[in-house]
């Protein structure tokens, strides 16, 4: 058990992080490499500066809860979505337990959240995942669209939250929760570049592309403001 723990917090973690960051960076690079101004019909390079403005707006507006027509139209989903995504982004970076591992690997402490705050955000994120799942099952238009992959991705992303929470609160079976937490989290890191989780990077690429499309080609010259997402 101890060896496994040492592996998962040492070399295993390093490999998972390398695959995660390397893989996602590669996906982002390949995305840009595969853009084609003629096929996409967007003159990216000649109007690059104008395009960047549109890209930034297109990303920024969608990162604000209720910041777009789309978010406002689906308030239930918006709450679940942001509760979940805030948790999965912030917690891995700011949980005290992770700071310990970071110290072992890097040799210095990172700032971290007080345990109560970490618990709060974890529960919000788990609640958010629950809302997302409930919506996926309850709404016919979403259920009909969903494939096993969509459920699997949500499950894979929620497992580290759930197991991490149980381990941090020292629930019975602590060792197993901790192990499950590390295995599921590292599986998630490793699978991210190869599954729909690639949206961690490709969300930004795709949003930026459409932002550029609207600001370079589809009316950026006339609208006066950025596209009213």
């Amino acid at each position: 058990m101890r060896d496994l723990y040492m592996f998962l917090t040492g070399p295993g973690l390093i490999v998972a992080l390398l695959v995660f960051f390397g893989g996602l960076a590669a996906r982002a690079l390949l995305y840009v490499q595969g853009l084609d101004w003629k096929l996409d019909r967007v003159a990216y390079i000649p109007h690059f500066k104008q395009g960047l403005k549109g890209a930034a707006q297109s990303i920024y507006r969608w990162l604000i809860p209720f910041g777009t027509h789309g978010w406002r139209k689906s308030p239930f989903f918006t709450v679940g979505f942001f509760a979940f995504h805030f948790g999965v982004i912030v917690l891995p970076l700011l949980v005290a337990g992770h700071a310990v591992i970071a110290e072992n690997l890097l040799g210095f402490w990172l700032p971290h959240l007080p345990p109560a705050a970490a618990d709060f955000f974890t529960l919000c994120a788990i609640g958010g995942a629950g809302l997302i799942l409930a919506r996926r099952i309850a709404l016919p238009e979403v259920r009909h669209l969903s494939t096993w992959r969509d459920y699997a991705v949500l499950g894979l992303a929620t497992l580290p939250l759930l197991s991490g929470f149980l381990a941090a609160r020292h629930f019975p079976g602590y060792d197993y929760w901790l192990l499950l937490h590390m295995v599921s989290a590292e599986a998630l890191l490793i699978l991210a570049p190869f599954t729909k989780l690639s949206h961690i990077a490709l969300f930004f690429m795709s949003r930026a592309q459409l932002g550029m499309d609207y600001s370079i080609k589809r009316g950026g010259d006339y609208r006066g403001t950025s596209f009213p997402w």
Binding site: L30, Y31, V32, Q33, G34, L35, D36, L39, D40, G70, K73, S74, F77, L139, E141, V142, L145, S146, T147, D150, K196, S198, H199, L202, F203, M205, S206, Q209
Partner: peptide
């Protein structure tokens, strides 16, 4: 190419387009 393939791949099937 990548724009269309990415669109098809990362669609979260959330139904917000409905």
């Amino acid at each position: 190419k990548s724009r269309t393939r990415t669109w098809l791949e990362i669609c979260a099937r959330c139904g917000m387009c409905a």
